[in-house]
Structures are given as C-alpha cells and as structure tokens.
Write a protein that binds this DNA or RNA. Sequence first.
DNA 1: CCATGATGGTTGTTCTTGCAACTGGTTTAC
DNA 2: GTAAACCAGTTGCAAGAACAACCATCATGG
Lengths: 177, 177
Amino acid sequence: MFLQLVYRRAYSGGVPELAEVDQLKDDDRLTAWRLFLESYRRVLDTLDDELQSERGLSLAWFDVLVQLFNAPDHRLRMNQLASRILLSKSGLTRLVDRMEAAGLVERASSPTDRRGSFAVLTPRGEGVFRDAFPVHLDGIHKHFARHLTAAEARTLAKVFEKIRGPLTSAAECAPPD
Amino acid sequence: MFLQLVYRRAYSGGVPELAEVDQLKDDDRLTAWRLFLESYRRVLDTLDDELQSERGLSLAWFDVLVQLFNAPDHRLRMNQLASRILLSKSGLTRLVDRMEAAGLVERASSPTDRRGSFAVLTPRGEGVFRDAFPVHLDGIHKHFARHLTAAEARTLAKVFEKIRGPLTSAAECAPPD
DNA sequence: CCATGATGGTTGTTCTTGCAACTGGTTTAC
DNA sequence: GTAAACCAGTTGCAAGAACAACCATCATGG
C-alpha cells in the first residue's frame, strides 16, 4: 500500500469540487508527504532484505533483540516489549514463540506478579544481535543518514517530533478547542 | 515492528566493539531516523483508523481508488497498479477481487493483449473516492502537513528525494565508485 | 508454421498480524 | 474475607500479504 496522492493532477484536472479543499495549495507539503511515504517503504524494504540476506534475520526479530539488549538485565515484560515495537499483545506472543523456538529469547516468569512473564535475551540471542547490529547500522547509514546534512537531520528531528507528539498515545482523544 | 534503535545506550553502555562503528557519532541523524520510523507508523495508523471509521474504507482500498482515479480513462493494467501501490502481483489480484465484489472496480480485458486485464474504476467507486478524498486530505493536513513550515516542507522533499532516489528500482545495483 | 522462451494474471500455500474471547492472577470495595 | 473489577498473557479465528507454481497468451527464431 503506497498512496501516491492526487495532488496536482486532481487539482488541475477535472475535479473542481475537490480543488476547493484549501490544503491542496500546500504543494510542497504534499510533495513532502508523498516522498515521505515512498521513502519509508523503500528504505525499510531494503533494510529488511539486506538484513535477511546477510544475517537471515527479519527487521521484526532484530527489533526485539534491540529492545531486549537495551533493557536492564536484558529482559522486558511482554507488555512493554509489545508497546515498544508497536505490535499487538497477541502478535508479540507469537513472535516471542518463534524466537524462543529459535533459541534467541526465553520466557521467565515474574517473581512479583505471577501473571506476567519476561522475555529475556539468551546468550545466543545476544550473539546474533551483535552480529547483525553493524549490518543494520550500516544500512541505515547507506540508505538514510548519508543523505542528511547535520542541519537537515536536526530539521527532520524537530519536525517529526511535532508530528509524532500528538499521536503518541491514543490519537485524537480531546482535540483542543 | 518499530525498531527503536540502540544509539546512545549501546554507545555509552557496555558495548565497546559496537561503539567503534563511526556512524554512532551521528546522533542527530539517528534521532531523525528513529523519529522517522515512529512518525510513519503512528501517522499511517491514525489515517487508516480515521478513514476506516469515517468512511469504512481502508487506506489500501483508498490507494487503489486514487490510482485509478488519476489514470487516463480511470483504468490501469493490473501490472502497473500493483507497482504503483507497492503490492505484489498476487496481493493485487486478491485486493481487486475484494473491491470488485464491493462494486468499486471492475476488470476489463485488454483488446490488444488478451493476457492482460485492466482494473477500471466504476461510477460507484468514483463516488466512494470523491467522498473519502476530503477525509484523507484533511487527515494528512491534521497529522502531517500542519506541522511543517514551507521551508521545512522543502527540506523534507529535498531530503526524501535523495533518500528514495537510489532505491527506486532495484536496491544496490551498482553503487557508484 | 511450430518450438522456445518471456510475460500478465491467478491460484495454492504459508506466514504474520489483529481482534475478541478466554484463563489465571491481582487489586479493590464492601 | 470474599465478590467484583481489572490486568497480563495466550488462544481461536479470520484477514491480508508474499512466494512459488501454474495457465494462458504473446514474441522470437528456426
């Protein structure tokens, strides 16, 4: 799904009633939007392919490894892990199932709350992570960071912070005013 | 899958051999990367939810409608449509099946090449598109464009053009030099 | 003209994901 | 202390997507 938008074509073409929508004048912004979408898809696909072919690891798996590696004691509650990688509870259950079968993570039950369990990085998982990390970082550099000057990077960070900000938890809770 | 990266933590933490990787110094760039990922996910999820709840349409369906609406004669070869919305051939076959069942598009066989078929926007599909378009455009404004100054929009466009550029067809064909 | 190969789409299969329902454990209120 | 509400994680189920194998058609070369 990619969503190259109507933009100019709908505007100058035969859709007068749509042209009324005044955001259509924001050509630069919509161009930015379109390129944003396309860049994401293409860069992520490329990174996934590279990691897959060079280390046999999907980005989703890598993402779990990253999170656990960064977590204190190399462990996280399923709960937290799910929200950090933006995956549903059930999705994470299955993902951890698969990674456990591959020996990269383990489950450990929480001593304080017997409902909960931790996902814990195994030594093997840590090894795989350390092995894959440079590949991924190199990919980010090659396909993304390399194209940014320092100033541009700061601009992007600023802008995306604003964009992400209002959506962080539940979208559209109480639109102010 | 989200991929909040290691960054500072892996750098300043206990992973000396990883810290050697010199892209790690590019803090601003990696921050931009992280926010880029998160923004995409959150904005797209939000737009999808809004379109879904306000018009009962997924972004994927909307994307097809956009493409067909823009195409000459409101029709595209399956082939082309698939590549424009970044979906696999088989994925598109099924997607068009579903949309055909819903009466939004039709298939028409090509007169010149009897292998090929077109996906064609039906009047009903066009109506649905015109109805959903403002909702989507408004969403883009609310959750994305609104946060950009004109200068920032131009910066984003420039940067993403560079990022997307080299990956447009097959990634990594022949890295120059 | 016919054999060979390329191309456009569809179908079989499998994988991943989300939602809703469920189980078992914890907290709160009476 | 116990019932009710709540929470963490798992499971059944169905939708969406990719890959490979497949069929039909077109293009090429003898």
